[in-house]
């Protein structure tokens, strides 16, 4: 009924604008913002990536595809890229496992005010400055650091367990920073699962691991996937954590690209590497989204 009534009333009013005008007007701010914040900077960078050198000074600018051959011309980049992707993979995996379990604990074992407090505590890393967060990990992980001291206190005879300046240290720092995303997306997916569904599974004879693998994980898959995207993409572009926690081993695509912009002053190469990374990431997700969709029976 209400659907019918609206056009009737609209036709009675003498001067009603056509619908596309109001639609456009409503969408304009959103698209305007997207253009300014996303499209224009990306386009500029995309243009840079084809230039022979950074467009500053008087020298004439030529357009070239040379920077997109970087992986062929400088084969060491392939190793760095592989390491970066592995770092992204481990971080995402660790975040997925920890985040899912934390979200599950929040949803199934807490309620009311306690749950809200815990959620806020989980979000705390978001509100701390990234640099402070990462540097505090150097205090914990370095030789004679917090962790090492505790270890010496427990087992005085054993060697040092300091892991600062290693891949593990980078992953720890990254997991710390990006875990809240995963917890939140998984929490949102899990909190919508009706208790009765889990009880129904139990009544049919399902034990906890069947409930976990056949009910909870498939139903939370959208949350896990969006959490993985939100983690993986920024992680493979990160440069602060690899630099501070990785030291010499912390050379990643993120740091290489950052170097091009800040140290080498080769913006076109930095831009082209960024776009290559973007293309690889999108290819990975395109592959996975197909697999995941088939895996969850077409519900995602």
């Amino acid at each position: 009924m209400p659907n019918k009534a609206t056009p009737q009333r609209a036709s009675k009013g003498a001067r009603i604008l056509p619908q596309w005008v109001s639609t456009t007007a409503l969408l304009l701010p959103a698209y305007g913002w997207l253009t300014i914040a996303v499209f224009l900077p990306l386009l500029t960078m995309f243009l840079f990536s084809f230039m022979n050198k950074t467009p500053m000074g008087k020298a004439p600018i030529e357009f070239t595809l040379r920077h997109y051959r970087a992986f062929i011309d400088q084969p060491y980049l392939i190793k760095i890229a592989t390491n970066t992707l592995l770092m992204g993979l481990w971080t995402t995996l660790a975040c997925a496992i920890l985040g899912f379990l934390a979200a599950l604990a929040l949803v199934r074992c807490t309620h009311g005010a306690r749950r809200e407090t815990l959620l806020i505590l989980i979000l705390l890393p978001f509100w701390t400055n990234g640099l402070v967060r990462v540097f505090s990990w150097t205090m914990v992980l370095r030789e004679n650091g917090f962790l090492d001291n505790i270890w010496h206190w427990i087992a005085p005879a054993a060697g040092s367990i300091a892991i600062l300046y290693s891949r593990e240290a980078i992953v720890i720092g990254l997991v710390h920073g990006y875990l809240p995303y995963m917890i939140l997306t998984c929490y949102i997916a899990l909190v919508t699962i009706d208790d009765a569904i889990i009880e129904a599974a139990q009544s049919l004879g399902a034990r906890w691991w069947v409930i976990l693998t056949k009910i909870l994980i498939p139903l939370a898959a959208p949350g896990l996937i969006s959490g993985a995207v939100l983690t993986f993409v920024p992680v493979i572009g990160s440069f602060m954590e690899p630099r501070i926690l990785g030291g010499k081993v912390g050379v990643t695509m993120g740091t290489v690209i950052e170097d091009q912009f800040t140290q080498a002053f080769n913006w076109p190469l930095g831009a082209s590497l960024s776009f290559t990374l973007l293309a690889v990431t999108m290819a990975i997700f395109a592959t996975f989204s197909g697999v995941l969709r088939r895996g969850t029976g077409g519900t995602a």
Partner: peptide, 27 residues
């Protein structure tokens, strides 16, 4: 619960939303 061999029906139906009807029944 899982060891009691009970059949249970809920007010909210509680079907597994990600499974077909046949897979629900086969669970």
């Amino acid at each position: 619960v899982w060891g009691r061999n009970i059949g249970m029906m809920f007010q909210s139906y509680a079907l597994f939303p990600h499974m077909t009807v046949a897979r629900n029944v086969a669970f």
